[in-house]
Design a protein around this nucleic acid. Structure first.
Lengths: 186, 186
DNA sequence: CAATATTTGTACCGATCAGTAAACTGATAA
DNA sequence: TTATCAGTTTACTGATCGGTACAAATATTG
């Protein structure tokens, strides 16, 4: 018996493991153990080893946010795209049970390995949200400040809801943020 | 030549290392390398090894917040204590160059080791801030929500300012939060 | 079918991991 | 002086680390 994977099947599995254990905590043996994929396959698809695996995960996450969140924010109906963002983000982070890997990597030494990808992810999120806010009636300055506040609030809510083991903190924070942004675009 | 330490001297050194490298990333050899303290001394003061070291660091952090932030919030002049909180927090986190170790531990598997300490730290912060807000004129519900928002915003600002390598994000977020809380207590 | 290319399992590598053991150092004090 | 003791250094343990090598198994192609 032998299961055959392709790279695209593996990346989401790796993502969950890095989320749970962090970069340093995600050892090769734990990866093989949890995924059932042997080292041979892993190094076949990711010759660069652990660093390439984490890089692929970050790229995958980025691609998802680009199509599901950033693009609509930049080009779609502004108010509708902002509303969809809150909903998609709540689903994506499973009401706070799942963390933001990019944010987690930013906090420790791992940031140095993926500095560009981490910076990009947040810059583009803030810019896209700012663009939508401007189209919804904010001035450039207001939009920038509010966008920063929104992304900031999401990251804080993830930390807090995990620390308190309380999903309601996350959903509640998201609602509060949504209301504030909406209030400022009338 | 031989340098002699006591436990109290070592804990702050350990704190900086755990902050930079995370729990898994802070290996014993990196700790001895950066502190210049040998394994023998480390295990003399912390027989429980790395876990006891991290536990001592968390207790130390908690004690600092208790006396510098929580206690004034609970018993001092409310508005003054809140103002002091923003100032102390900005200094403590070095305008966002330093992370919150408790928040960082909450994000990955490390949470399971220190679950109680992590939950306590945030619960007591939110409760203390809520208490001050009530004395400053908020209803219980308002105070709870605002306190959660404040602590949440600080954690998010730490993540974002580190991700963007931009200290101004942190200081700016703190000011925005301070203004909002002040506005709600008039 | 046969020939080739891709994918996987397993054994292995040197380095490093957390932790232990015990000899040693220097200060205090009887 | 000598005994004691907190604190330090050094050498070591077995386990695990990330990574490599390569043959066996499987798909793909002619």
């Amino acid at each position: 018996m032998k299961t055959v994977y392709e790279r695209a099947d593996i990346v989401p599995l790796l993502a969950e493991i890095f989320r749970e254990l962090g970069y340093e905590g995600a050892t090769l043996s734990r990866i093989t153990e949890r995924t059932g994929i042997g080292k041979g396959s892993l190094y076949h698809f990711f010759p660069g080893g652990k660093e390439e695996m984490a890089g692929a995960v970050l790229a995958d996450i980025d691609a998802w946010f680009e199509q599901a969140v950033y693009r609509p924010l930049r080009h779609g109906d502004a108010r509708q795209a902002i509303a969809a963002m809150w909903s998609n983000v709540n689903d994506y982070f499973r009401s706070g049970r799942r963390i933001c890997l990019v944010g987690a990597f930013a906090l420790d030494d791992t940031r140095e390995r993926f500095s560009a990808a981490i910076g990009d992810y947040f810059i583009r999120w803030i810019d896209a949200l700012g663009s939508a806010l401007m189209r919804a009636g904010c001035t450039e300055g207001e939009a920038q400040t509010l966008a920063e506040e929104g992304v900031c609030g999401i990251q804080g809510a993830l930390v807090l809801s995990r620390a308190l083991r309380d999903e309601t903190v996350f959903s509640r924070s998201l609602e509060t943020l949504a209301k504030r942004l909406e209030a400022e675009t009338r």
